[in-house]
Design a binder for these strands. Structure first.
Lengths: 202, 202
DNA sequence: GTCTATAAGAGGATAGAC
DNA sequence: GTCTATCCTCTTATAGAC
């Protein structure tokens, strides 16, 4: 943690505010529907000023993705996860966390299909590095949980990993929330159940 | 089946071709990224001609959704499903079918977030009717499978229904396909396993 | 680095001839 | 119903003053 000058702190705060706005808008309407004008209006600055901080709309989205990946890594490193005895429990805790983030409207959504954003992200060093870090840690947990006999060993770890990532942007939690029939906690537990225990009776 | 005049048959064939193109493009890049110019180019007609058949981009997408819902209903009514003895097996067959359609690049993808398309579809009679029909039948299967002790009875049928719909546009199958490590059949079986049996060991 | 103003272009939709 | 040509709005991005 290098100490920052006052100017640098102001800069940092401003960029944090920008990334927060981007994060919220990505969660709410997705990349294509989000406009740079909205971001600027949300932050309360002129659009041209935005472009002094981030050179393109894609870079804005990438910054939001990097931040959420950093949050994920921080959660993986937290005691709330590390102190859980079994790898399977740690995985379940991480998925619970992603569902909570999603229900809080703070999970930036990427287009799953091909798009300008996808190709931009695939060339974005920092994003790819963070993604690799998180994937690496999750991968270790997956392999360990399979060794422990808790996770289905017939599934390639890669398939499990993709499935977990997919739950982070699953349409089901927001849909259930929109019905107003269940509170967040109930939704989280039901989705965790369908994810880890499946739809079939046990 | 009313007999159609030659002119009407030509009209029908043209509109089928349009809907096919829309379907393919929706599956490939989604509603926002699909342009009406592309659709016209794909069909091989002028954009203005397209607008003689469908009054808006939203109506194009709705037509594709209606068609896939009709295909789903036809599959539900087919012997391949009806002759299966247990409701749970019929459900599994339907999900298998949706995964195959998706892997074939024929599953039109809706934006899960709020958008112009969502609000348009929510006012589209035919779409809503077809969606209700399919949901009704799936709902009956779900309740029956729970009675049979095959599906987890602790999950509200509605939650199961949403979860099944979500699998139809899950990012995991295309992702696995893109790695080139698994053939379609293998992907289908793995995703079916994670869906019905869960990630945990049994 | 912030602003106002504007360029540049994509994309949905339409006019009007045939 | 099909075409060419065009309109018009929205959106990304930049110019240039302060």
């Amino acid at each position: 943690m290098a100490r920052l000058s006052f100017r640098q702190q102001m800069l940092q705060a401003r960029e944090d505010a920008i990334v927060s706005a981007v994060n919220r808008l990505l969660a709410e309407k997705g990349f294509e529907a989000m406009t740079v004008d909205e971001v600027a209006a949300d932050v309360g600055i002129a659009k041209a000023s935005l472009y002094k901080h981030f050179p393109s709309k894609e870079e804005l989205a990438a910054a939001a993705m990097v931040r959420v990946l950093n949050r994920a890594r921080a959660y993986l490193d937290s005691d709330a996860v590390r102190l859980l005895p079994r790898a399977a429990e740690r995985l379940r805790a991480v998925v619970r966390w992603t569902l909570q983030v999603q229900l809080a409207g703070e999970m930036p959504a990427l287009p799953s299909q091909n798009s300008t954003l996808r190709s931009a992200l695939l060339q974005h060093r920092e994003y790819l590095d963070r993604l690799n870090e998180v994937s690496e840690r999750l991968g270790e947990l997956i392999v360990q949980a399979q060794r422990d006999g808790d996770l289905n060993p017939a599934l390639p770890p890669e398939v499990v990993l993709y499935t977990l990532y997919a739950r982070a942007c699953d349409p089901v939690p927001p849909l259930l929330k929109s019905t107003g029939q269940y509170d967040d906690e109930r939704i989280v537990e039901m989705v965790l159940s369908t994810c880890f225990d499946g739809l079939n009776a046990r």
